[in-house]
């Protein structure tokens, strides 16, 4: 099974993962920039497909990170994934973006049995979720995702760029202090879940915050 995974919840990234390929990776790319997704994503996917010699008909499913993440960037990946799935007539799934970092933690040597993944939510807040990990298992989401201040996040080891931003409030792991959700891990997580007979949610974005719009109150009358 060949999956095209896309995530733009923080940086822009895409990957081709397959259970037939060595290490599961057919191709991948990611940027460091968190603000130019609309420019870099399509060329990155195009190049990755060309380099891997993969066309739309080779792909079995598309997986998109559904956040949480800054809205405009997040939507660029979902809009891209939905359109590709429509044109190629492929099934489309969503994955919670923090799962990408959770899997990366689980595969590392510094993993704790219970941990937080946090990313930058701007406005001095973080997006976070809590996971548990058992030997030889996929990380298990037990709480979240949420958005809030770092000081309000439970006190267990914390991984990801959101933890790195607030080392005083979070038990940030220095190895993961700049780590962002990457489509490569998201695709691998999706592949593992599907292989285990699990189901994946749809591509509805997890905004977690309202649109900030204020319903105007009644106009103050003179006198």
């Amino acid at each position: 099974m060949l999956i095209l995974a896309i995530d733009t919840s923080a940086v822009a990234s895409a990957a081709l993962v397959s259970d037939d390929a060595m290490e599961g990776v057919v191709g991948n790319f990611s940027t460091e920039d968190t603000r130019s997704h609309a420019e870099v994503l399509a060329p990155g996917i195009n190049r990755m497909l060309a380099e891997a010699g993969v066309t739309g008909s080779d792909i079995d499913a598309i997986v998109t990170g559904v956040g949480p993440g800054p809205f405009t960037g997040l939507r660029s990946g979902i809009a891209t994934a939905r359109t590709l799935a429509f044109v190629w007539q492929k099934p489309l799934y969503g994955m919670m973006s923090l799962d990408a970092v959770a899997l990366e933690v689980a595969e590392s040597t510094v993993a704790a049995p219970e941990f937080i993944v946090a990313t930058d939510a701007r406005r001095k807040e973080v997006y976070w979720a809590r996971y548990t990990l058992e030997e030889g298992q996929l990380p298990q989401l037990v709480d979240g995702p949420h958005v809030g201040f770092a000081v309000d996040v439970p006190g267990v080891p914390a991984y990801g760029a959101g933890a790195g931003l607030y080392p005083d409030a979070l038990q940030a792991n220095p190895d993961f202090s700049f780590e962002q959700p990457d489509a490569l891990y998201l695709g691998q997580f999706a592949l593992a879940r599907l292989a285990a007979g699990g189901e994946l949610p749809d591509s509805t974005p997890l905004y977690l915050r309202e649109s900030d719009a204020q319903v105007p109150g009644p106009r103050k009358r003179a006198l």
Partner: peptide
């Protein structure tokens, strides 16, 4: 983004 995906 949708238009670029269409093009890709």
């Amino acid at each position: 983004c949708a238009a670029k995906a269409l093009a890709v």
